[in-house]
Design a protein around this nucleic acid. Structure first.
Lengths: 225, 225
DNA sequence: ACTCCGTAGACTGTATCCAATAGCCAGTCG
DNA sequence: CGACTGGCTATTGGATACAGTCTACGGAGT
């Protein structure tokens, strides 16, 4: 084995652009989450294909995945439409999120080691810094990263996959309220870290549940805020 | 409106075959769950296409969905392989299932009405009848139907969608142990119905959690059984 | 005997082409 | 004047053809 002595990170991984359909998927998702494509809008395969500089095929495959993930509604022989979220649906989504995240918090408390806690501290620091700044997008991103890290510490791949799907959609709803939530959210994150570091399962669950419920309430009150 | 007087069920709906990719998806899933396609097996698009009498296109799309749903692993430039489940993964899956089903039981207890309870009773009866018979497949099917009904009563579409994915894979693991679980499982179902009918949230959660945990333990002890 | 290189085969991934379907608008008949 | 019917258009859905890439096997050289 010649490669035995080579360090891990030094090989640039030979940047393979990955399947085109994946990149199209990501691109469209970006356009949807940034509201460049608005809810209810009619998406035409050929237009998207031309706009992205690829053929229709990858666009089709991407749209189908977006359909199964709940981002677009695919009406037969008519086209794809950006999904319009309803109040009920948002509520259900946030309910499920509470469930998944609470379980993740519990498992994280069970499994966490010093290194894991340190990572969370680090992310929390970055998040708090972002709150001070102007860019809402940064805050939302940091928030997602923090929750993803907790999920990773839980060590349940199936749970993580489900949460990934749910959280991404929650992020879409969350963006408008991120500003008002702001600082309070990161205080709660700190409490969560403390519970995890202390391996206090019950407390971790409670903190996380309360935290996500706050987010839910903020969402429902978003117009009046 | 000429069609006003026509009864609802009389028009045979003109059996619309629906998108081909969907049928291919279902067909392949059937082949996987019945173990006609064994774990680790290499799936070749052109072979499947020819075998099913369709072109490669729908097969591709079906395989991609199977990939995102965790049924096959899609290795770039190499092909699709039927996913081989590991012990860890099964455990994680059953853990998540416990979580989702318990929440569903709670919500069902909150929302249930007389009609809903009656439906559960009915399904339970069918299930008990199936246990008496010989066909394991029938039992597994009845079990899935029962859990699906509870999920429907919960009235959370997002939760239901997640559970649908998870349960289908659980079903795959469950089949081998269905025979040993058999009757005991349906006794627990009866208890669950009682809890739901009595709108006892806490008890519904406990019963369901215990029920799914039993299944998990049965799975881990399957070889020795 | 082992390793390295070259070549051949096969599969995936992408682009183009044709057919089928739903929606819409105008025209026509009652 | 209203409602139905016909054709028209735009778009998806499925099939086919083509190019790029990875793997595996076999032979030659050390």
């Amino acid at each position: 084995m010649l490669s035995a002595g080579l360090p891990e990170g030094t090989m640039p991984k030979l940047e393979r652009p990955g399947p085109l359909r994946e990149r199209v998927y990501e691109a469209l998702l970006e356009l949807i989450t940034t509201r460049a494509l608005r809810p209810g809008q009619h998406l035409v395969e050929s237009e998207l294909a031309q706009h992205l500089g690829v053929s229709r095929q990858p666009v089709r495959e991407a749209l189908q995945r977006l359909n199964t993930d709940g981002w677009v509604d695919l009406r037969p022989a008519q086209g794809a439409f950006v999904h319009e979220p309803t109040e009920d649906e948002a509520d259900q989504l946030l309910t499920v999120r509470t469930l998944l995240e609470a379980e993740a918090a519990r498992l994280a408390a069970v499994n966490a080691d010093a290194a894991g806690v340190a990572e969370l501290e680090d992310l929390c620091g970055r998040g708090e810094a972002a709150v001070g700044g102007e860019e809402v997008e940064k805050v939302v991103e940091a928030n997602a990263a923090f929750h993803a890290r907790v999920m990773a510490l839980a060590g349940n791949a199936v749970l993580a996959e489900l949460a990934r799907q749910v959280d991404r959609r929650v992020r879409w709803y969350y963006t408008p309220v991120a500003r008002q939530r702001g600082a309070q959210s990161w205080i709660e994150h700190r409490e969560l870290i403390a519970a995890i570091a202390g391996k206090d399962e019950q407390r971790a669950v409670e903190v996380m549940r309360e935290h996500t419920e706050h987010t839910r309430r903020s969402y429902h009150e978003r117009e009046r805020g």
